[in-house]
């Protein structure tokens, strides 16, 4: 396939083609200046042929770049749907990113489960201690008779026992929360691999676009106008706040902006 492309492409260097066109153009001007219009038209024909040849070779180059890019992405167009999915690195990357979503979601839910379990335990310790506090203070003030003290002693014992159990539970929850953060390591590794793939693809695409722009130029295809982005279109979290002037830097900025609008 690539040999045929090479033969078709002929002249491989666009600079050679350009100098060929230049030489023809000069010859045509010279002929016209001499008044030899017959010769000038012949040169014009050669010039057209040279342009077609250059265009042809650039299209060949574009085809080759496209082929290389497709090979790099590991998308095999001959394959059936099922194996295509297995072989494509892009769909592999999508799977990896979905895995990141699942892992972070699980970790967030696990952490919230443990926190939701811990809050009532912490509240119970607090309310039991608050209940005991005035009684304990009255002991210190000498306002308690022996019967009351025995009663309080029992209560205090129960409080200590339940606090030991609750704080053990809290400790377990806290270390579970700590362990749930292991997603950062796993997702970090996965994301790094996807970043690497995106960089490779970007490199291939830049090459492809470069080649395509030569063809566009030769074929006289006008570049499509850049589409203006909708100013209010959702963008998600801003990752380069410092470099941007069209975004707020935090809640204080939001509040200032809204109050300037009469909020």
């Amino acid at each position: 396939m690539s040999e045929t492309t090479n033969q078709l492409a002929g002249n491989d260097d666009p600079n050679d083609s350009k100098s060929e066109i230049m030489a023809h153009a000069k010859a045509m001007v010279e002929n016209l200046e001499r008044g030899d219009s017959h010769e000038a038209f012949k040169v014009l024909e050669d010039l057209n042929k040279a342009r077609d040849r250059t265009l042809f070779s650039e299209v060949g180059r574009l085809t080759r770049s496209l082929h290389n890019a497709i090979t790099d992405f590991h998308i095999d167009i001959e394959m059936n749907q099922q194996s295509q999915k297995e072989i494509s690195r892009i769909s592999d990357a999508s799977d990896r990113l979905n895995y990141v979503i699942n892992l972070t979601e699980d970790a967030a839910n696990k952490t919230m489960d443990k926190v939701e379990e811990a809050i009532p335990a912490a509240n119970m310790i607090q309310s039991a201690a608050e209940e005991l506090k005035p009684e304990w203070e009255s002991v210190l003030k000498g306002e308690v008779d022996p019967d009351q003290f025995r009663e309080l002693h029992k209560k205090m014992g129960a409080f200590i026992d339940s606090t030991i159990v609750s704080s053990q539970g809290l400790g377990t929850n806290l270390s579970d929360i700590l362990l749930a953060q292991d997603y950062q390591d796993l997702t970090g590794q996965v994301i790094k691999r996807v970043i690497q793939l995106v960089q490779e693809i970007e490199g291939s695409l830049v090459e492809l676009v470069k080649t395509a722009s030569t063809v566009e130029e030769l074929a006289g295809i006008e570049k499509a106008q850049k589409v203006e982005k909708d100013a209010i279109e959702a963008e998600g979290p801003i990752i380069n706040k410092e470099e941007r002037v069209d975004v707020v830097s935090g809640q204080d900025d939001v509040d200032d902006l809204l109050s300037s609008l009469g909020f």
């Binding site: 998600g236 939001v254 902006l257 909020f263």
Partner: peptide
């Protein structure tokens, strides 16, 4: 998480009563 000034203005004009940007705190 949308933090563009144009978006906040758009929301204000559309009649939002409050705007909190993520990440946010319980106090906010």
């Amino acid at each position: 998480a949308e933090a563009k000034k144009d978006q906040i203005i758009e929301a204000a004009q559309a009649g939002v009563n409050g705007y909190v940007v993520k990440p946010f705190t319980a106090t906010v």
